Simulated assay, not measured.
Amino acid sequence: MVSEPSVLAEAELIEATTAALAAVGLAGATVRLSDRRFLAALATAAGVPSAAQPGFFVTVDKLDKIGWDGVTAELVGQRGLPADVTAAARDKIEALSGLPADQVADTLTNAVPGLPEPGCVGVN
Rank of each mutant, 00 (worst) to 15 (best):
L63K: 02
E94F: 02
F38K: 06
T59C: 03
A95L: 10
D91N: 06
T18A: 04
E117W: 13
P118F: 12
A101Y: 04
A101M: 06
Q78S: 15
G28T: 03
E15C: 07
V71Q: 01
V24S: 12
G25H: 06
K92P: 00
P54F: 07
P113Y: 05
L75W: 01
Q78N: 15
V76M: 04
S34N: 13
L75V: 03
V112P: 00
G77D: 13
V71R: 01
V7L: 08
L115E: 00
R32D: 12
V123R: 15
E4P: 08
D69I: 11
D69P: 04
A43H: 02
P49T: 09
A52S: 12
T17A: 11
T30Y: 09
L96E: 01
V2L: 15
L33I: 14
M1E: 13
T72I: 08
G98S: 04
E94K: 08
G77W: 05
L108W: 00
A83N: 13
N124I: 14
T44C: 14
A20R: 11
V24G: 11
V121D: 05
A83K: 13
L96Q: 02
C120G: 05
K62I: 02
E15Y: 05
K65E: 14
A101W: 03
L8P: 09
V121L: 14
A46S: 12
A27D: 14
P116G: 08
G80S: 09
A105G: 04
V48H: 01
C120I: 01
K62L: 05
G55S: 10
R37E: 08
E117Y: 13
A9E: 11
G114N: 11
P118G: 09
K65M: 12
G98K: 06
T17C: 05
A9K: 07
E94L: 08
D84Q: 10
E4C: 10
E74M: 11
V24W: 13
P118N: 12
E4A: 07
V112L: 03
L75E: 00
V31S: 06
L96D: 01
K62E: 09
T44M: 15
K65H: 13
S6F: 05
N110V: 07
F57C: 09
E12T: 09
A43G: 09
L75S: 00
G28L: 04
V7R: 08
A45N: 04
L96K: 03
A83M: 11
V76W: 00
D84K: 10
S6T: 08
